[in-house]
Write a protein that binds this DNA or RNA. Structure first.
Ligand SMILES: [Mn+2]
Ligand SMILES: [Mn+2]
Ligand SMILES: [Mn+2]
Ligand SMILES: [Mn+2]
Lengths: 244, 244
DNA sequence: CTCTGTTTTTAGCCTTGCCTAAATCATAAA
DNA sequence: TTTATGATTTAGGCAAGGCTAAAAACAGAG
């Protein structure tokens, strides 16, 4: 069994770099709140075993092996199922589930994982719109873009929000910017100014800072059709910014 | 925060000796599957702090302080609430919940504890009939006796079963000897022989070995009245044999 | 190409919780 | 009262995962 620490390193590598990107020692250190020295020694250990969990090149960083990827997705599945379960079955708000799931993900047996998934009807996304890896270790692909990249006057739905910033989640929730809320951009102010968003449900217009807007992802209303088509954008499925 | 290990030691001391009994190093070692040497050093540490969790006398064993008792009951509350939750909400059998709860008990936040308790309607016993400590740290008293001590021809109900032996729980469940099943003893064979138990629901008679019968506790059908009366037996509320 | 600031690695140390082997203590039998 | 025996404690180590401080490698500016 992988220790909690090892699990956390694998998850961090996946969340920061997906399947292919090399991630530097310092970046991992910052995310896990440990020193770079600690990361170096852990990465060396993970790369050294006979079935290595990461590829590691001195001074160049690390990325997951297929082996490591599998483990990372397994943990992420636990995390996201637990988040949804806490939300759906126990009534926690979407801003309250992350920290608890961060602990529970490490102690969920396969049996419990299965029961939770079944009770929730084999869900595909967690309360923040993060896709839930499948039991056999694949990450569902979704075609979404950052709210900040959405053209003006294009109807869309909120499809994902970064989940580790409790404050921001509360703020967004208060504005009605919840999962699947229909919105469109009225105007983007120049010089990195705020973004004016129309919230269809209630027809209000709300100004959002750039920081927040880059944490929110949307799907075009036509995306359901697009999902059946070949993938033409080059972003990888889940990595790069999202959290757990 | 107390480490998982420390929590396990406190729980073991409570389960083995309750509030007052001194427990020897070797007994703790056997239960936790560590060496006596390890127990000695842990007990010394727990007794040394400025707010000691245990009283410890060299060569004489240890018992919980008030401080330690509070912590032990807190953990036990988590364990038993989780067991019941797994049973009631996720459909696990009573023989499947213990091991999972053993891990979850350490990572349940107060908030989650409260939600679980509320969802279950502030329950008083877990799936094995173990009383659930209250939020404010008291262990409910129940007036029960071991099946083995029940006089013949006295109607009673199964009120508790040791929970850590999966095999035995499956065996008992298969016989219909579940929680609250109505039974009475037909005959106790002499020379430590088996006990003949009539299972009212179905009116079958079943022979039980002494080993099993001493793990099962019962309440007299009149016990609800007795519960309101002063406690005349001198067994302490929960300690001595039960598990988690 | 060389210098310099930043990043990463190495070296050495610490804490927790466990272990084995060697004392030491307690107790019950002789 | 002595002795044997079992239980407990001490002494010394080990592995995991962290930290700090010093050394080394890289990368960008000149
Ligand atoms: Mn799993
Ligand atoms: Mn999430
Ligand atoms: Mn609690
Ligand atoms: Mn139980």
């Amino acid at each position: 069994m992988l220790s909690n620490s090892v699990q956390d390193y694998l998850k961090a590598l996946y969340e920061m770099g997906g399947e292919s990107e090399m991630i530097g020692t310092g970046a991992v250190a910052a995310r896990l709140a440990v020193t770079p020295a600690s990361v170096t020694s852990m990465l060396q250990k993970l790369a050294a075993s006979d079935a290595p969990l990461v590829h590691y090149k001195k001074h160049r960083g690390a990325r997951l092996t297929d082996e490591g990827l599998g483990k990372a997705l397994e943990i992420l599945r636990h995390h996201r199922l637990v988040e949804l379960f806490l939300h759906e079955t126990l009534g926690f708000g979407w801003d309250e589930v992350h920290d608890q799931a961060e602990k529970l993900e490490h102690v969920i047996s396969e049996e419990l994982e299965d029961r939770i998934a079944r009770q929730l009807g084999d869900p595909v996304v967690d309360p923040h719109g993060h896709p839930i890896p499948t039991k056999d270790g694949r990450m569902p692909v979704r075609h979404e873009k950052r709210l900040i990249d959405l053209p003006a006057a294009t109807p869309a739905r909120i499809s994902r929000v970064a989940d580790h910033d409790t404050e921001m989640l509360r703020y967004l929730g208060g504005l009605g910017l919840v999962l699947n809320a229909r919105i469109e951009i009225v105007e983007k102010s120049p010089f990195d100014g705020p973004i004016l968003v129309r919230i269809m449900d209630g027809d209000r217009v709300q100004a959002l800072g750039r920081r927040v807007a880059s944490q929110v992802h949307v799907m075009l209303d036509s995306a359901t059709e697009m999902a059946a088509m070949p993938n033409h954008d080059n972003t990888n499925s889940d990595a790069g910014d999202s959290n757990a």
